[in-house]
Design a protein around this nucleic acid. Structure first.
Length: 1156
RNA sequence: GGGCGAUUAGCUCAAUUGGCCAGAGCGCCUGCCUUACACGCAGGAGGUCACAGGUUCAAGUCCUGUAUCGCCCACCA
């Protein structure tokens, strides 16, 4: 866009079509240099401060349209509040995203250099990841800037930077000190490729075809039993006495290889009771069910009875054997294992008996805890069969031939083969199972028992709570809570935090309600290292005793300090550790270290050091000199994310930033991280500061691709917002995003490739289908649905062009070789069209606004169109504020669009064209022209302010020019405006609109004029009057409205291209005129009569009218309606009926004239 | 299996606490290059508000059930 000063005149002209690129570049530079994004604490009170922390994007890759939506909405809120005079901070930054980033970088190194992370080593890998982070952080920030995000860039943070590391260590230490961080053995989701635990939400389930293998475990004959018979069981033991004792117990499994770690087989403790209860439940359900469901339930009931018939006796027998303490011999490993009773064994599933592998199945683990079973790990971290160590510490040689086999493939094969050759494989059935896979490596997850660190979110046992009265944990504000999760639940339930839309509060509360411990350790190299130093010692009785009592008092912590038997100078050690503990610089903990809970073994002593990088360096050095080593694990990435709302403001220091900007005003995010992130921020915010981290949580829709799937980096269906900016401009992107943001609907976004050769578009969905076809024709087997990332090259759909183009997923060589196609979507056309409209409306204004502002205005004396547009403006301002207050972005856009496009452009500007070009030599003409200019300037001014949060670049650009053309844009005597400076800092129109401009009467009157205009246009069109012809028209109005209508009639004349307009009170149909009745008006267009057509039209209208009248009369004739409905509703209906009847009279008059 | 949401015009979506004739954009049809804008202007066609019951003077809106789709959570030896 160029600003051209026309040589021959002083008319300012700008290009006809809006070009976003130059505008956006110009305006960005303007904002950057102005410092408008900066946030500076100035002591403004909380109600005049507005803070948003950005959900820090992962540095795994570039942003896609989902992020564009998220950040557009935030920027709208930020700009809106900034203009309203709030002290406004938008805190930017990025997230290191632990496992995700490490996985991406590891994969790339594997692909490019063929090396694993172990080949590189910890330091080198971390260096590579930092490099990657630098690259993508740069890219992400440039994307955000291109979108117009007005973050305070000087505050940009990274979840792994030094300041945040300090906050992480402090939080870790505080939690550790209070015993809320502990070490435990848990079954975790193990990724055997990345060799780390992964969180539940990083696991996805996929249906896999598998089998049920039925194995026979030999029963050890009763004379060999070791356990004494339980006297209590003798009675029931007789129940199955009739049958000979089974030689084997039959079990079914989908995972044969886990049998190496079996330590029991479980059977239900009360099979009769179970069957009876099930039967009762099913029959009750069946009799309550609808006819359609009943057959199915009946079938279930039948199956249950059959099952009972065939297996109950044996299950009872086994149950009794279990009560006797009978044992089984686990084949292949020759381990003696227990037969136990546990409700987990479901008599209707499998064989009714279930093998228990506590170290490799979450449910079995629970069973193992209940029955104090040995837990035998049979898996190595890299997914092979481990050397198996029995509970007594001896190596199991019987299974030595399995060691080193891959667990799930080779191990499984060999187990099956070996059992079969021993005659212990009963049968195999096909079965489909939902198998957990790692999100990162795509490999099946192995449940794996390992040492992990946890944050306790559940309620803390409270021996002293009674004395305090309200729970054990004291928060910094002095209040108490029973646990972290409970504190976060309370914050939402008591309304300190509001969730928009409110239904999402439920998922937050449900999840927190489970109060599950949070596993925070990850076996990764990329992340915050745990500030814990540990050493293992041989167990002694004293240590175990202390371990049980850990964390209860300072006295006991001191006692711990002397539990380091190998230390050379115990006195020095005791003094040091004791002092540091008292000073709050270290905390000690101790726990058993080995896998087998019941086995004698080592004890680990651990110290958490508060500031290992700074003040407490000396402590670390001392500990390390005594043989303590830092824990190799890093923290779950969400640990640092949970601190984001205050770690970015300098916590744990009491900074001015923290004082001004905490808590945040609103957190904007999409629903999938409500639990991972939102809930944890609330917990940590309350724990660290005693205050909630934000007042509102706003959950926005998700962007889906053309197939309805959510956009994600891993699927490769993400569209780079910069591509959209390239084709449509940033403002169009933002406009469209805001316009599509409704409360309930996700946003579907079909994508097309832009051919770099010919510019034609190729549909992504079609390209995917083509790719699938061509792979099939090449004989490739497709084991999964193809994703956009699988299309690395696509053929242009334009037959004339037909060239191949590379997509963003092509490798570098391909990209170098052929041009890369950008992606786009015609969804953004609405935004582009709107921007162009605004551009041109402004262009029109600039051409007409030059000259001095007019004198004092008196609204009452202005022409109706002026009063109307001003009243509409005031109304629009109020509605916009209301919409944004409820996060109704789509509604906010609609309000502004209707005002600007339908109101200002289509009516006001069209009407004032005549006034602006009119004769201003006479006083009346001059006044009309001056007032029109002033009001147009005012409306353009307000339009730009209102639109600025949504489409900042374009409005800022136009604002600058408006300031040149019409620097004074208030309404003299009515509204004063400050128009100096940049729009980004201009004052936003007030919450209450402009009450002095409100005028409900003119809104109604003008609607009537619009009806008359539309009626006349309609008549013209229906009677085939050429558009250019000026017609002569007559309008018949009721006597009492004659004068006012004459004063307003110019509106009609100018909008319908009328030459001569008669406004009369009484009058018959003029000769050769076509007519129409609109409300209380009859309107005629002269010299065009086609009586037959007119007659048909009139009859049709009368018919429709009659229908409505009948309906209304019936309604008003209904006594109940009149009695029950609200009076204003009844009144409105009466009024409406009167109008309809009046119109009917008019039409009938017209009809009879036509028939004369 | 548990929870949440959706189903309205050919498409994408609106419709406050139930209350005028269910609206908009895109697309389609007709006519317009009217001196801001053809990325535009003026008109038009197009709807059994998923289905079946119920409550009410009044139902797209509330209740019950059915069907289909989506998402979240938990999971089957």
């Amino acid at each position: 866009m160029r600003l051209v000063q026309h040589p021959m005149s002083d008319t300012v002209t700008i290009d006809k079509t809006y070009d976003p690129r130059t505008v956006e570049t110009d305006v960005s530079a303007l904002w950057e240099s102005s410092g408008a994004f900066r946030a500076i604490p100035d002591g403004r009170p909380p109600e005049r401060t507005f803070t948003i922390v950005i959900p820090p994007p992962n540095v795994t890759g570039a942003l896609h349209l989902g992020h564009a939506l998220n950040n557009t909405l935030q920027d709208i809120l930020i700009r809106y509040h900034r203009m309203r005079g709030f002290n406004t901070l938008w805190q930017p930054g990025t997230d290191h995203a632990g496992i995700a980033t490490q996985a991406v970088v590891e994969r790339r190194i594997r692909e490019q250099e063929g090396k694993s992370r172990h080949d590189l080593g910890r330091d080198e890998l971390v260096r590579c990841i930092w490099q990657w982070k630098d690259e993508y952080e740069r890219r992400i920030i440039s994307q955000l800037k291109l979108m117009g995000c007005s973050c305070d860039w000087e505050r940009n943070r990274f979840t792994l930077d030094e300041g945040l590391a300090r906050a992480v260590r402090e939080m870790f230490f505080r939690l550790f000190h209070e015993g809320l961080i502990f070490r435990g053995k848990r079954l975790v989701n193990w990724d055997t490729q990345l060799q780390t635990a992964v969180a539940d939400d990083e696991v996805y389930h996929e249906t896999v075809k598998g089998h049920f293998w039925y194995f026979k475990y030999p029963v050890i004959p009763s004379e060999l039993r070791t356990a004494p018979l339980d006297a209590k069981c003798q009675g029931s033991a007789r129940a199955g006495a009739g049958n000979p004792e089974p030689k084997h117990v039959l079990i079914a499994t989908t995972r044969p290889e886990t049998m190496l770690g079996d330590t029991a087989v479980a059977v239900h403790p009360d099979p009769e009771g179970f069957f009876a209860a099930e039967e009762e439940r099913l029959s009750a359900e069946s009799s309550a069910a609808s006819g359609k469901e009943r057959p199915e339930l009946q079938m279930k009931l039948e199956a249950l009875r059959t099952r009972k018939e065939s297996s109950l006796a044996e299950l009872i027998q086994l149950r009794d054997m279990a009560r006797e303490g009978r044992k089984l011999r686990l084949p292949l490993v020759e381990r003696v294992i227990s037969l136990i009773c546990d409700e987990w064994a479901d008599p209707t599933k499998g064989t009714g008996c279930v093998k228990i592998t506590p170290a490799h199945d979450p449910n079995d683990y629970e069973v193992g805890l209940r029955h104090n079973l040995p837990m035998i790990n049979v898996l190595t971290p890299d997914g092979r069969v481990a050397r198996i160590v029995e509970p007594d510490g001896t190596t199991n040689y019987a299974s030595a031939s399995y060691e080193g086999l891959t667990f799930a493939v080779e191990g499984r094969k060999k187990v099956i083969a070996d059992l079969e050759s021993r005659g212990l494989l009963d049968r195999v059935e096909d079965y489909e199972i939902e198998l957990g896979h790692s999100d990162r490596s795509k490999l099946p997850i192995e449940p794996f028992l390992s040492d992990q660190w946890f944050v306790k979110t559940g309620d803390v046992p409270e021996p002293r709570a009674k004395a305090r009265g309200s729970g054990q944990i004291q928060l910094p504000d002095g209040s108490h809570t029973s646990g972290l999760a409970q504190a976060a639940i309370d914050a939402v339930q008591d309304g300190r935090i509001s969730v928009f839309p409110s239904r999402y509060a439920k998922s937050y509360l449900d999840w927190l309600g489970e109060k599950r411990d949070w596993c925070i350790s990850r076996q990764l190299w990329w992340g915050h290292r745990l500030s814990v130093w540990s050493q293992r010692f041989a167990e002694n009785g004293r240590a175990i005793q202390i371990a049980r009592e850990i964390g209860k008092s300072e006295h006991q912590l001191k006692a711990l300090a002397i539990q380091a038997p190998q230390l050379d100078n115990m006195q020095e050690w005791n003094e040091n550790i004791g002092r540091w503990t008292r000073e709050g610089r270290i905390v000690a903990t101790i726990q058993k270290h080995d896998f087998q809970l019941r086995q004698a073994g080592d004890v680990a002593q651990s110290f958490s050091v508060r500031e290992p990088e700074e003040r407490d360096r000396e402590i670390v050095e001392y500990l390390e000199s005594k043989g303590f080593v830092q824990d190799p694990d890093v923290l779950d990435t969400w640990f640092s994310s949970a601190l984001w709302p205050f770690s970015t403001l300098g916590w744990p220091e009491e900074t001015p930033d923290l004082k001004q900007y905490y808590p945040g005003s609103v957190l904007c995010t999409s629903r999938d991280i409500i639990t991972n992130w939102v809930a944890r921020m609330v917990m940590f915010g309350l724990y660290a500061l005693g205050r909630i981290p934000f007042d509102h949580v706003y959950i926005h829709p998700k962007i889906l691709d053309g197939r309805g799937e959510t956009m994600s980096k891993s699927k490769g269906n993400g569209v780079d917002p910069v591509d959209i900016i390239h084709t449509h401009g940033a403002d169009a992107l933002r406009y469209t995003m805001a316009d599509m943001t409704t409360e309930t609907q996700d946003i579907r976004m079909p994508v097309e490739y832009v051919c770099p050769h010919c510019g034609e578009l190729t549909d992504q969905g079609a390209a995917l289908k083509n790719e699938e076809q061509s792979r099939k024709s090449r004989g490739q087997k497709l084991d999964r649905k193809l994703q956009p990332a699988d299309c690395t090259r696509v053929k242009c759909a334009n037959k004339v062009c037909g060239k191949e183009l590379a997509t963003q997923w092509a490798d570098q060589a391909t990209k170098d070789q052929m041009a890369v196609a950008r992606e786009t979507s015609d969804k953004f056309d609405v935004g582009r069209n709107f921007c162009n409209k605004l551009w041109n409306a402004a262009r029109f204004a600039f051409l007409n606004l030059k000259g001095a502002p007019c004198d004092r205005l008196d609204v009452a004396t202005l022409p109706p169109e002026d009063r109307w547009i001003l009243a509409r403006l005031s109304q629009t301002i109020r509605r916009y504020h209301e919409a944004l207050a409820g996060y109704q972005f789509s509604a906010s856009v609609r309000e502004l669009r209707e005002f600007f496009w339908d109101g200002l452009c289509d009516w006001y500007i069209e009407l004032t064209k005549a006034r602006l070009t009119g004769d201003d030599r006479n006083p009346q003409g001059a006044w009309l022209r001056a007032t029109a200019k002033q009001i147009l300037a005012f409306c353009m001014d307000q339009t730009l302010r209102l639109w600025h949060p949504t489409i900042p670049f374009l409005t800022e650009r136009l604002w600058r020019q408006l300031n040149e053309v019409a620097p004074q844009r208030g309404l003299p005597g009515i509204v004063d405006l400050n128009c100096d400076g940049l729009l980004i800092r201009a004052e936003f129109p007030p919450l209450e609109g402009y009450p002095s401009l409100d005028d409900p009467a003119i809104l109604t009157t003008f609607e009537g004029l619009q009806d008359a205009v539309r009626g006349l246009r309609d008549l013209r069109a229906n009677t085939n009057v050429p558009p250019k012809d000026k017609v002569r028209a007559t309008i018949v109005v009721p006597e009492q409205h004659l004068d006012s209508f004459r004063a307003e009639a110019h509106v009609v004349r100018h909008m319908v291209n009328i030459g001569e307009l008669d406004v009369v009170a009484e009058g018959k149909r003029p000769r050769n005129a076509a007519g129409l009745a609109i409300k209380s008006l009859r309107i005629f267009v002269h010299d065009v009569s086609d009586d037959q057509a007119d007659l048909a039209r009139t009859l049709k209208s009368l018919e429709a009218l009659q229908q409505q009248i009948t309906g209304k009369e019936a309604k008003l004739g209904n006594e109940k309606f009149v009695a029950n409905a609200k009076p204003e509703v009844v009144e409105a209906e009466r009024k409406r009926l009167a109008e309809l009847l009046a119109q009917q009279t008019l039409l009938q008059a017209h009809l009879s004239e036509l028939r004369e």
